[in-house]
Amino acid sequence: MHLDVVSTGAELDPAAAVRLRRAAEAGSLVRVARGAFTDRQAWDAADARERHRALIRAVMPRDRQGLVLSHASAVAVHGLPWIGSFGDRVVVTDPGRDRGQVKASIQRVGGRGRSLATVSIDGLRVTSLAATAVDVAIREHPWRAIAVLDAALRRGVTRTELGAELEGRRMRNPRVVRALVRSTDGDAESVGESITRWGAVVLGAPPLALQHEFRHEDGTVDRVDLWQPDLGVVIEFDGLVKYSDPAMQRGRAPHEIVVEEKRREDRLRRHRDVTGVGRATWREAMPGGLLPRILLDAGLPLGDRWPAAWRAAAIRAL
């Protein structure tokens, strides 16, 4: 969905501007930013990403000179995955500033001295995929960052490019940022796979491979989300959307999907190479969830200091 934004700027005659404001007061329009409005019904039907894109369209015509869309706003424009809110401000990098600045609808990040890799999208100057992923890794929660990094690799960005973007960058926690870049994997097909794998890294579990296929004697092939070959452990992410999204249901009732999933898990448990199977949902894979217990019960050892690492991950809110 594309939200059309109408502005009360100088190009609009005063009478039309008054009509827009009155429509907003009456509730048929939504105020996106100062002097910028969109249709209420379209706004209510839009998701968080398209609402943020509407905010960008409302703000950037007034503040675009020399500024580069970056961070969460670049994620929204690139169509990369994102956990949580995009925020109520457009985020830009300002090559002319040493320090950041926050205003009502725009947040400037200081970019003086930084060589900005950019692309043009819909007439807007945006940080490149690699630069966007590294910006997010440096400034955002690791669970949010790993999903963006994995998606960037899936689109063709290389770890070498990510490493080059890291050179010379100031970081509050370089150890975590570099661990995120080392751990990123373009084979991740969903945010759930990304955060479950990263949670296992934080917990000190053995490395998990993505998208492993198991062939059964009857010819059936099951592809699993995460696989530890040395220990024979399968970890699946169960996003639950398969039970409610018509596109994923493919005409099946939810109870039929549950039965199919049970049969699939039974096949995996019978496979000669599999010693254990664990399933994680969003609640369990997020910081502070029950992922440690799920991994341990499936047969994956965790690092000696995993309780402290898991508590620390839960302290910083998404």
Rank of each mutant, 00 (worst) to 15 (best):
residue 4 D to H: 15
residue 4 D to F: 12
residue 8 T to E: 01
residue 9 G to T: 09
residue 12 L to P: 00
residue 15 A to C: 13
residue 16 A to R: 14
residue 17 A to R: 15
residue 20 L to S: 01
residue 20 L to D: 01
residue 29 L to N: 08
residue 30 V to M: 10
residue 33 A to P: 02
residue 41 Q to F: 14
residue 44 D to L: 15
residue 44 D to G: 14
residue 46 A to T: 08
residue 47 D to A: 12
residue 47 D to P: 12
residue 49 R to W: 09
residue 51 R to D: 00
residue 52 H to W: 00
residue 52 H to M: 03
residue 53 R to C: 13
residue 55 L to Q: 06
residue 56 I to W: 10
residue 57 R to H: 12
residue 66 G to P: 09
residue 67 L to A: 14
residue 67 L to C: 12
residue 69 L to H: 14
residue 72 A to P: 08
residue 72 A to N: 14
residue 75 V to M: 05
residue 75 V to L: 06
residue 75 V to D: 05
residue 76 A to I: 00
residue 77 V to A: 14
residue 78 H to A: 03
residue 79 G to N: 07
residue 88 D to E: 14
residue 89 R to H: 14
residue 89 R to F: 09
residue 91 V to E: 13
residue 92 V to G: 12
residue 93 T to Q: 04
residue 94 D to P: 05
residue 98 D to S: 13
residue 98 D to E: 07
residue 102 V to I: 10
residue 102 V to N: 04
residue 102 V to C: 03
residue 106 I to H: 04
residue 107 Q to C: 03
residue 109 V to D: 01
residue 111 G to Q: 01
residue 113 G to W: 07
residue 114 R to H: 10
residue 116 L to C: 08
residue 116 L to R: 06
residue 117 A to Q: 14
residue 117 A to K: 11
residue 121 I to F: 08
residue 122 D to H: 09
residue 128 S to W: 13
residue 129 L to C: 12
residue 132 T to E: 12
residue 132 T to K: 14
residue 134 V to H: 11
residue 136 V to Q: 13
residue 140 E to M: 15
residue 141 H to D: 13
residue 145 A to T: 03
residue 147 A to V: 05
residue 150 D to S: 14
residue 152 A to E: 03
residue 157 V to G: 05
residue 158 T to P: 05
residue 162 L to W: 11
residue 163 G to F: 05
residue 163 G to Q: 06
residue 174 P to N: 09
residue 180 L to D: 02
residue 184 T to L: 08
residue 186 G to A: 07
residue 190 S to K: 04
residue 190 S to R: 08
residue 191 V to G: 02
residue 191 V to M: 01
residue 197 R to L: 02
residue 197 R to K: 13
residue 197 R to C: 02
residue 199 G to S: 10
residue 199 G to V: 06
residue 200 A to R: 03
residue 202 V to T: 05
residue 203 L to Y: 01
residue 203 L to N: 01
residue 214 F to K: 07
residue 216 H to K: 01
residue 218 D to P: 04
residue 220 T to S: 06
residue 220 T to C: 09
residue 223 R to L: 04
residue 223 R to Y: 06
residue 223 R to E: 02
residue 230 D to H: 15
residue 231 L to K: 12
residue 233 V to T: 13
residue 235 I to A: 11
residue 236 E to H: 14
residue 238 D to S: 12
residue 239 G to Y: 12
residue 239 G to Q: 06
residue 242 K to L: 11
residue 244 S to V: 12
residue 245 D to C: 12
residue 245 D to Y: 13
residue 246 P to K: 01
residue 249 Q to V: 11
residue 251 G to S: 04
residue 251 G to K: 04
residue 255 H to L: 10
residue 256 E to M: 13
residue 256 E to V: 10
residue 258 V to C: 10
residue 262 K to S: 09
residue 263 R to G: 02
residue 265 E to R: 12
residue 266 D to R: 00
residue 267 R to C: 00
residue 275 T to P: 00
residue 276 G to V: 00
residue 282 W to H: 03
residue 282 W to E: 00
residue 283 R to T: 03
residue 291 L to F: 06
residue 295 L to E: 07
residue 300 L to V: 05
residue 301 P to R: 05
residue 304 D to V: 09
residue 304 D to W: 12
residue 309 A to C: 09
residue 310 W to T: 01
residue 312 A to V: 06
residue 314 A to S: 13
residue 315 I to A: 15
